[in-house]
Write a protein that binds this DNA or RNA. Sequence first.
RNA 1: GCGCCCAUGGCUCAAUGGAUAGAGCAACGGAUUUCUAAUCCGUAGGUUGCAGGUUCAAGUCCUGCUGGGCGCGCCA
Length: 549
Amino acid sequence: MLSKTIKEKLISSYTRSFPSFPLPEQFTVEIPPSEEFGDFATNISFISASILHKSPVEIAKSIAGILKEDPFFSDVTVGGKGFINMKVSDDVLRDTLTKIIEEKEDAFECDIGKDKKYQVEFVSANPTGPLTVGHGRQAAIGDVISNVLEFVGYDVTREYYFNDAGNQMNVLARSLWVRYNQELGVDIEMPEEGYRGEYLIDIAKEMVEKVGDEYRERWDEDVKAFFRSYAADKMFDWIKADLSKFNIGFDVWFSESSLHKDGKVNETIEELRKRGYVYEKDGATWFAASKLGDYKDWVLVKSTGEPTYLLTDIAYHRDKAKRGFDKVLDIWGADHHGHVPRVKAGLKALGIEDDFCDILLHQFVTLIQRGKEVRMSTRRGEFVTLGDLIDTVGADVAKYFFVMLSPDTHLSFDLDLARTKSMDNPVFYVQYAHARICNVLKHAEANGLDVNREGDVSLLTTPEEKTLIKDIERLDDAILDAYATFGPHKLTRYVEEVAKAFHIYYTKYRFVDKSNLELSYARLSLVKAVQIVIRIVSRLIGISMPENM
RNA sequence: GCGCCCAUGGCUCAAUGGAUAGAGCAACGGAUUUCUAAUCCGUAGGUUGCAGGUUCAAGUCCUGCUGGGCGCGCCA
């Protein structure tokens, strides 16, 4: 909250100091590395030095001179190299706290995305098997980013894209049919590319009970279609059950086959052709992606007449644009990075603005158990499913572990560690802070204090109290950071810092002191404000905050 | 061979080009008559993989190496 105000004050001081010069493009207000530099610092003097042809120190002095007049600050100094270091006055800190207590979440309101529609597409696993822990990371990242986008004002659509008709589904159907026959005692060989997971054996057993031996050694288009849709339904039930166990929901389930049915794939290729990016070669239809920055051209329609994944994906993104989203975000696993320039080239060919679509790639998840990597492969049927993971460590821990690292960082998920309720699980650290807050409030009530009464925040003068106020007031900065970088881990980092500041405070002071009710009420007000902030972040991360632990 | 991502204390990781590179875990030493010790305080631990370059300023940007992950289909 404060950094925003300070930014405005810097802009006006700069304009007053140097009226005939343009504002520097990008300057920052940040929390300095050491308390000796004050509460906030800015690099505005470095950024503008080349425009003004003055030394940073000179510029800083002139801006600081104006800021010093403002009662908003209790102290403004110029650091050795040209940083402007600012301390905000105690009154301002108190007012900020009061605002949080009174307005709660609204105090951090942000309207960046006001009246704009954002679509986030993630998970998008085809129904050929259960969700893996890799999908789990993507689900968690996508959900947190969606929550953040909503917080900053966007109208967000969470979408799951799936292919229920392609060749993979035929392979799945055949694999299930093989398992079904094996259950009936007929030994048919699993195709090379077949899905060998045990889950198909379970479904096959179920089928034997339901339909008997009707499809024994009988394989034609109708049988294939039957097994395909049976398998797909089962897989979707499973996927949806695991997502629901993970407390993650989608607004739209988008079927790839609907793009074909509605003629959108044909429309797309015709539009690409009209714009001159399509040609025929070797019996196939090609996309001239190399004209648009990719390193080679790609096939859109195979010589068999079937469209490729790339074509339907371009058609899908074209459809997103036509559905009126202002922006879309795709979240893909790092194994899809080669696909990025192709889709981007497709959008460019269709005349869609480059910044319409962002693609966030996340690195893989490795499961570690007893110090060794757990191998996973849907095809081979070796995996730990997302559902297994949640059953083992709980949805809160799983989600927190998935988002606590930068998406760019390879995640080694240590199952033994996650199962331990120790401080290796930062989620417990944060939840414990929250539980302590709840307990303090309960204790206050039990001692006859009215926890709804507003305290006199001017009594909060200790360094720990000021630190805590400064930590909670920058919630909006943390959210904006997560938003601007698509970095959910900024939120876990932030909330850990808030929890830490609270634990320190808790250890050092008492909140309920019957001999000093005024101070007690002041401290309870601060405690409530911390509770508000922790709850907001936990909601954004999508984890629970128990009142007792 | 080409492309993308990564390399930071013993371990796991932070750090929109900004000040003395920060946390947590592990290690060691302390703190509880108190609202929850799942907590807190302290100590120790670093030439940010290597070599150059760009600039007021480089863990961050550029070039070249080394090592690891992932791609490079008329698969999805």
